[in-house]
Every structure is written in C-alpha cells, then in structure tokens.
C-alpha cells in the first residue's frame, strides 16, 4: 500500500495509539480495516482505508496483521513531513516493511517491524438511525473536551433544536459550553450543523472523548452521532479514502 502523503497514515496511527496499543489490521483487495477496543472495553475504534484511496495498492490474499501501534508510531516519527510511504508484507513473512521516500527522491528509509500474534475479538456494530447528528469543527470539539475536563471527568451532552450543550461538574463546581447551530453557513468547515430527530441527553467520560480528539488532525470536521442508551459515535473522515469512527459507551446515573 503506497501513500503519496505518508503523513495521512501517521495521523491515523497518532489518532489510535492512545486508545489501543496494538491492533489487528485486516488487509483485503478492498483496502485496510481495523477494529479494536480499549483495554477497559468502554470504547471501540473502527478504521476503514479503502484501496482506491492509496496511490497504489495490491493485496493478493487477505491478511490479518498484528501490529503494535506504539512501535509503528515511533517508526513513523522518523518520516519527513512530505515523504511518501509504502507499507509491504511479503507472503510468508512475520514482519511488515515500512519504506519512506523523500519528496525529491534523494533519501530512502526502510524499517521492518515484527508482526504480533493477536487474538482479534470482533464486535458487530449495528447500523443505527441516530436521534441526533452534529457536525462541527474538530478543533472546536477538542477545545471543548479540554475545557470540560477542567471541571470534571464526565461531560453531559444535551441537544436541542437551537444547539448543543456540553456541561461538566466536579469538586471545583461546574461549567458548560453551549454551541448555537450556525445559520449563515459561509464555510462549511467552520459551521456547527445539528440534525435532530429528537433531543438527547447523554453522559460520557471526558478522558475518552479527549483521546478520540487525537485523530482531529485527520479532518477539519468531526461528526458526533447520539441516541439515548446508545454509544456515542465520533467520526473523523479520511479524505478520499475512509474514516476513523470511535464509539463510546455512555455513563448512567446509579
């Protein structure tokens, strides 16, 4: 699999590696997918990178590759920001080859990472017709998570037709941030757009939301989908090739 902009892959890895340290990458003719839960099985991440999004892609037979995201992240940190990236696995090999090429083709780096033997537990993610779908700038969402984490470890997300409200309370006291739906949309990327079938009010652990925001460099917008008694879906699109979707189970009043 070859990417002209290797930085896209680095952003994917940086977006996943705090939530999951290692994961099984499923490679097929259609592209690469990954599904993994965090260690406490509270959150799940689903990655899709379609083959047509790569500059070139070939997969002669389906492979499940156990990869340490922490090690992959260390290797990708050596990549130049404009480097192209090629990832290769030979048929009977127990390692993955990561090749980086500088833009003016004068520097070639090759790394080989040992593959891991991981037992991949796969969950079925049901198609959900969410009560509420919010689109907002990913930087804004990152900022809200950071600000709310000052006040408490849980954030209540309430949606109404006017907008969406994030609130947190703890020993210090409490705080809330309300975003109003954008009316005159000049730039889609900066808009807050709320499609609401019915109002929802759900509580989530803010430290997971903050971990999801590590994937924000992938996309200027984030999609948040909510329904009562349903995991939140937090989606960052990967331009022209797929998405990273995080799911987080809600917290409930005892």
């Amino acid at each position: 699999a070859r990417l002209l902009h290797g930085s896209i892959f680095a952003k994917v890895i940086e977006g996943l590696r705090e939530l999951v340290n290692e994961a099984t990458w499923e490679c097929s003719g259609n592209g690469i997918t990954l599904q993994a839960m965090d260690s406490s099985h509270v959150a799940l991440v689903s990655l899709v990178m379609r083959s047509e999004g790569f500059e070139s892609y070939r997969c002669d037979r389906n492979m499940s590759l156990g990869i340490s995201l922490v090690s992959m992240s260390k290797v990708l940190k050596t990549m130049g920001k404009d480097d192209s990236l090629t990832i290769r696995v030979n048929d009977d090999s127990d390692s993955i080859i990561i090749a980086m090429e500088s833009q003016n083709q004068d520097k070639f780096a090759d790394y080989e990472l040992r593959l891991m033997d991981l037992d991949s537990e796969h969950l079925g993610i049901p198609d959900t017709d969410y009560s509420c779908a919010i689109k907002m700038p990913s930087s804004e969402f990152s900022r809200i998570c950071r600000d709310m984490s000052i006040m408490g470890d849980s954030v209540l997300i309430c949606t109404t037709k006017e907008g969406v409200k994030f609130s947190a309370k703890g020993d210090l006291g409490q705080g809330s941030i309300r975003l109003v739906q954008t009316t005159n949309i000049e730039k889609e990327e900066e808009a807050v757009i709320i499609e609401m079938k019915e109002a929802v009010a759900l509580t989530f652990a803010v430290r997971y939301l903050s971990m999801f925001c590590k994937a924000a460099p992938l996309s200027p917008q984030v999609g948040l989908s909510l329904s009562e008694d349903t995991p939140l879906m937090c989606e960052f699109k990967i331009a022209e090739m797929g998405h990273v979707r995080f799911y987080l189970a809600p917290k409930i009043e005892d």
């Binding site: 079925g124 995991p231 189970a249 917290k251 409930i252 005892d254």
Partner: peptide, 14 residues
C-alpha cells in the same frame, strides 16, 4: 455518581 457501561453491552461479540 454515574456508572460507566461497557461497549459490549451494546455491540455483540461476533
């Protein structure tokens, strides 16, 4: 206090 649910409460293991 609110209690954190597990993701497998909602998504079934295949």
């Amino acid at each position: 206090m609110n209690r954190q649910l597990g993701i497998s409460t909602f998504f079934l293991t295949l």
